[in-house]
């Protein structure tokens, strides 16, 4: 059974009297331990998909199962518990709390899970050492470089030992030098720790570490791991790794459907 199973997902936003359909019957399956890159032009529904995958939002229609749980059946507080325990977020803008030290930022998800102080501090330090910031635990975010901040965010994402790491443009605000270690870390999480890593990105280097690339356009999956299909969209593909890692084309039907609806 896939870790994540989305079928016919639609998501509507109401802007005044206009209804904007951000996702149009999207199908997607993600297996445990995979690294998935979600790519697509602005407005293609990447962020919306990420919000639903991250249990930050619920779909308007369709079925969304995360680890066997129907997201649409869960109440707000159950969604909170789910994302607190199973999902770790990494954001483009790091989103660290400026008033807290690196260690306290990493402790934050554990505070909300009611983990005791001693254990929390120990784990936070361990994680910071793991991301190479053992000497920066007491530093506030504004005393750290961009790359260091993102590493603190990585440590925070791992605080409650989640099954899924959801990274929204993790290298978007970083130069290559500081971005590469982040991508390496994400890849290792999958390879060494068996975590499922979902990266929403424009960055071909980020996509390059993925087992599969899911391409979105106009709220539909238009391709999975195919380099050529999206040629006209202007989204560059790396050509590396991707071709060899095509799994099953289970969402190709959607591709056609998506293509049709787009046409």
């Amino acid at each position: 059974m896939p870790l994540l199973e989305f079928k016919g997902i639609t998501k509507d936003y109401r802007l005044g009297k206009t209804v904007v359909r951000a996702l149009r019957g999207l199908d997607l399956e993600i297996e445990e331990g995979e690294v998935i890159a979600i790519m697509g032009p602005s407005g293609s529904g990447k962020s919306t998909l990420m919000h639903i995958v991250g249990a930050l939002d619920t779909p308007t229609d369709g079925t969304a199962f995360l680890d066997g749980q129907d997201l649409q059946q869960l109440k707000e507080h159950q969604l909170v518990t789910l994302r607190g325990k199973k999902i770790g977020f990494v954001f483009q803008t790091f989103n660290l709390i400026q008033t807290l030290s690196a260690q306290r930022n990493v402790e934050l998800p554990m505070i909300f899970q009611g983990i005791r102080k001693g254990e929390r501090a120990r784990r936070a330090r361990e994680l910071l050492i793991k991301v190479g910031l053992g000497d920066r635990v007491k530093h506030k975010p504004n005393e750290l470089s961009g790359g260091e901040r993102q590493r603190v965010a990585m440590a925070r994402a791992l605080a409650n030992d989640p099954e899924i790491i959801l990274a929204d443009e993790p290298t978007g605000n970083l130069d290559t030098e500081s971005g590469t270690p982040i991508l390496e870390m994400l890849k290792k999480l999958s390879v060494n720790d068996g975590k499922t890593v979902i990266i929403v990105t424009h960055d071909p280097d980020a996509a390059a570490i993925a087992d599969r690339i899911v391409r979105l356009r106009d709220g539909c999956v238009v391709a999975v791991n195919s380099c050529g299909v999206e040629g006209e969209s202007g989204v560059p593909t790396t050509g590396r790794d991707v071709e060899g890692s095509i799994n099953e084309p289970s969402t190709l039907g959607t591709t056609t459907e998506g293509g049709d609806s787009h046409a």
């Binding site: 930050l56 909170v80 989103n95 709390i97 934050l108 605080a159």
Partner: peptide, 16 residues
């Protein structure tokens, strides 16, 4: 606002 969003994303309930 953003900080509140982050706290909620990392598992803060409304009550928290």
């Amino acid at each position: 606002t953003k900080e509140i969003g982050v706290m909620k994303a990392v598992g803060a309930k409304n009550g928290h």
